[in-house]
């Protein structure tokens, strides 16, 4: 994909008075994911402080920052793996305080992990079917006694899983054990499994880690494809700048648990604070 088409797909960002940015096309609606002043302390250490985000329905945003800046901690806060010490998180307008990770997922947040966490002993199709689990409705007894409804549903969702695998052209791996897949395919499978839970927001934790430039390029196309096809918002953490600058509409830069800059990729690239965070003070003239 050439860089012009990417430019075209990127909508205009409008500055709002809140600390958050939202693409213009999503302005009329409530943000699908909103975090207000969230922070967490581990003992005396403030890992994340005063983090704000508001994501439009079909927005792709990026979160970058040096190692240990607190990016993954933010993902864990947004998915309720950690309970925030301060602040509120709203998913589609619902406060997630006190909810379990599963409930937050049902509200519409799905995620992938920095170190791949697949169900490695299960087949690829089964991995995706686990994601579909909450949309399947059969009762335990129906399943155990193999009523016709069970077979109908299994067939239906098997087909759906194959469709989903088709996005990354992975149907031929359907009956392979997930743990035996090549690395790149495992990362892709994790994204598909997250998509199977019908999320409204997809959180990708370093999706391009360990990928070569070609694969990263392909991933970029796929991220845009997923957004267009499923009409969901995507928030990603990434160290690969070509990916972040290529797909994200808004980029936030995190350092020592605080957002130090926020804006379009172009603005971020020019921001002296960002350059300082990455390269040190001497880089700034």
């Amino acid at each position: 994909m050439s860089s012009e088409t990417k430019q075209k797909r990127r909508p205009v960002i409008v500055q709002m008075e809140s600390p958050n940015l939202i693409p213009e096309r999503d302005l009329g609606q409530i943000p699908v994911l909103e975090a207000k002043h969230i922070g967490i302390d581990f003992g005396g250490l403030t890992a994340v402080d005063d983090f704000n985000i508001a994501m439009g329905r079909t927005e792709i945003s990026g979160l970058i920052g040096p190692n240990g800046a607190g990016k993954t901690t933010i993902f864990n806060l947004l998915t309720n793996v950690y309970k925030p010490t301060r602040g509120t998180i709203l998913v589609d307008g619902y406060d997630t305080a006190g909810m379990s990770i599963t409930q937050v997922n049902k509200l519409g947040i799905a995620r992938t992990f920095q170190n791949i966490r697949l169900f490695s002993q299960m087949t690829v199709a089964q991995n995706i079917l686990v994601g579909f689990g909450n949309s399947m409705s059969t009762h335990l007894v129906t399943d155990m006694l193999r009523f016709p409804k069970h077979w109908k549903q299994e067939r239906e969702y098997r087909d759906k899983a194959m469709d989903l695998l088709g996005i990354f052209d992975m149907q031929r791996f359907a009956d392979t054990k997930a743990g035996n897949l090549p690395y790149g395919a495992q990362r892709r499978l994790e994204i598909l499994r997250a998509l199977a839970t019908h999320p409204k927001v997809l959180l990708l934790d370093e999706p391009a880690a360990g990928m070569n430039p070609n694969e990263t390029e392909e991933l970029m196309d796929n991220i845009l494809k997923i957004r267009d096809e499923f009409q969901i918002a995507i928030l990603l953490i990434e160290h690969d700048m070509s990916l972040v600058m290529g797909v994200c509409e808004v980029v936030g830069v995190l350092n020592y648990g605080k957002i130090i800059a926020k804006g379009t990729p172009e603005e971020i690239q020019r921001d002296p604070k960002v350059i300082e965070a990455y390269l040190g003070k001497q880089g700034v003239k």
Binding site: T79, V81, S100, I101, T102, N105, K106, A110, R111, F113, R117, L118, F119, S120, Q121, M122, Q126, L129, V130, G131, F132, G133, N134, M136, T138, L140, D143, M144, H150, E154, R193, A194, A196, T197
Partner: peptide, 24 residues
């Protein structure tokens, strides 16, 4: 069945299972 798959998912990776909507 979907119930069994959820149980296997918990065995393979509990955190991922939770994040995938399995009520662990």
């Amino acid at each position: 069945s979907r119930h069994g798959r959820a149980i296997l998912a918990i065995r393979d990776n509990e955190i991922a299972a939770e994040a995938t909507g399995v009520n662990t």
